[in-house]
Structures are given as structure tokens and as C-alpha cells.
Simulated assay, not measured.
Amino acid sequence: MTGPTFRFAPSPNGELHLGHAFSALLNRDLAKIQDGRLLLRIEDIDLTRCTPEYEASIRADLRWLGIAWEEPVRRQSEHFSEYEQALARLVREELVYPAFMSRGEIRAHIAAQPEGGRNWPRDPDGAPLYPGLDRMLGGRERRRRMEAGQPFAWRLDVGGALARVGRPLSWREYQDDGLTQVGAVDADPEAWGDVILARREIPTSYHLSVVVDDALQGVTHVVRGRDLYHATAIQRLLQELLGLPSLHYRHHRLLLDPDGRKLSKSLRATGLAALRSDGKTPDDVRRLAGL
């Protein structure tokens, strides 16, 4: 029987910090305990911010921590065609639609609502939900705008997608040991509204690429930060729509700065390269991370 497969999937848009080390080490520890595999995936669909230099520093930091992974490493920027295939399926099944409203138009629409839009619904991250006006455009008008080169994003018709699934969704959440199941967590994709799955210039998004990657790589256990807990609802919906397997999830605690905020790549004091140059050892990092 094949053991579980874990993955650590950083974006090379900055240097790793103590919070990344906590997540990477936790994935490595759980894979070792369960006689499983550990994969490294480079999530670099943001071609403007992600660089080879940051990727090289990520690899160097992980090696310094004593973390080994299976080769080859999957780099998302090399697999746009696979994400395009998944998107094309959703387009054919009319589960996504081209949305043409700009950020400014969205803000203006919301501001024009009663009380200046102060009561407009917001997603779990606090951003206003997309109004969904473009969902009502007819096919001829959509084609006209697209052929005219008007900028757009492909948005998931969450209501239509849930109707297609036809049943409530949930995921399996595990405790800190990664072995004991807490139970089924109800997924609420509607809390996010009609999320963006791709743009005209980039044929994917975080949500779409991560579910495709996890399935193609045979990932079984996703261990990541609590900040992505609610995002799992959208990913569960996409897994159902694309016929992909449901996974085991554990959303671990976040490491915070002295002001109680989530650690940022801009905070040099917690960067692994800075800690290493200050004479800290991998054991020191484990202790600082609370492992």
C-alpha cells in the first residue's frame, strides 16, 4: 500500500521566513511519521513577481533546514496548458463566464448601493463580493466584447456550479498531529461569490492550478496555514466539478509578529536567510517555530 503524499508549495516572490519553515518542517515530519512522500512545488503563476533568484533561495533554505524532496520539482509556469484544459472543460459546461467589469467599475457599483455599499457582502478575506452583473450577459454580447479585445476574467458561476453538484460539500480536517480526524467540515463556496479562475493573459488562478496540481501529483494530504482554511471550500467545489479526488486537510496555526499579524516576506527579522546569517541553526529554527 502506497503511503500518503504531502507537498510544500511556496511562491518564489520573496524569501522564506519562519512561518514557511514551520509549514515545510511540519509537512516533512508528518510525511516521515506516515512513511509518505514529500513533494516540492513552485507556485509561480505570477510571472511579474516570481523570479528564479527567489526560487534558488527557497531551495537553499530548505536544504539548510535538512528537508529533502522528490524530483522533479513541479513548476506551475511550465504547465499552463494543463490548466487551460481544465478551464476549457468548465467553459464548455457553462460553469464559468467572462466578466468584464474593471476594479474601478466594481467599486463604483458597490458605492452606488444604499449606505454607500457599507453593507455589501464580503468574502472570508474581507473583500467585497463580485456583483455578478456579467453573468446575465447573452452569448452574442459576450462574444462581441471578447472579439473586440475587451479585458475580462473567467469567473466561476458558484450558484450554477453548486446546482450542478447537487449536494452539500465538505472536507476532512485533521488535528495538529495530522493523524486524528476532527471530522467533516461543511464547505461554503458561496461565501466567496463568483471567484476568478483565470484571466485572458494568464489561463489559471491559485484555486484552479492548485486543485489540478494536487490531482496530477497524487497529493493526498494538504498541510498548510490557517489563512487558507476557508479557501478549501472553493477548491472542494472545483474538485467535484473536474472529477478530482477529495483530499485530507490540516490547517495549522500561523506564526505571528509582535503586533499579532501574520508573518510577511517583507519582515527581514524572521527571514531564514537572515536567521542563518545571524548564526541560528536548523534546531534553533525548530525551537523558534514551536516544533
Rank of each mutant, 00 (worst) to 15 (best):
V195M: 03
D61W: 01
D227F: 03
Y130S: 01
H221K: 05
A108I: 13
G271P: 00
G66C: 00
V185R: 11
R75G: 15
P98H: 11
V285W: 03
A60M: 07
V158N: 09
L242D: 00
D61Y: 04
G160M: 08
T281N: 04
R164V: 14
G138D: 15
D227H: 00
Q181T: 02
S11G: 06
H251F: 00
Y249Q: 01
L47M: 06
R253P: 05
L275N: 06
R135V: 04
D61H: 04
I196Y: 11
G218S: 05
A68T: 12
R287W: 09
D194M: 00
G66R: 01
E147M: 14
A198M: 05
L18W: 07
H248D: 14
G14R: 05
T270I: 07
G159N: 08
P258E: 13
E201K: 02
M101E: 09
N27R: 01
R287H: 01
G132Y: 03
R143N: 15
R92F: 08
G132N: 01
H221M: 15
H230I: 13
V212M: 01
T232S: 07
G36D: 06
K265P: 02
V195C: 13
F80M: 12
E70M: 02
S246P: 05
Q150Y: 08
E55C: 11
L256A: 07
L62M: 11
G3L: 10
A231W: 00
R74F: 11
A184G: 09
W192Y: 14
L247N: 05
D29L: 10
R199G: 02
S209Y: 10
P114H: 05
P124W: 12
H20L: 07
P124S: 12
R59L: 12
L263A: 02
L255N: 04
L137N: 07
R224D: 04
R145G: 04
L156Y: 00
R200F: 08
I42L: 08
G271L: 12
R236Y: 02
D44K: 04
A198W: 01
L228T: 02
I110N: 07
I42A: 04
L241R: 10
I106D: 10
R107Q: 14
P10W: 01
D214S: 13
T220R: 04
G166T: 10
A68C: 12
R226Y: 06
V73N: 08
S11I: 03
R103D: 14
V211Y: 06
A111G: 09
L179D: 11
L267Y: 12
T270Q: 09
R135K: 14
G160R: 13
F6M: 02
S23W: 00
A21C: 09
Q217L: 15
E55L: 11
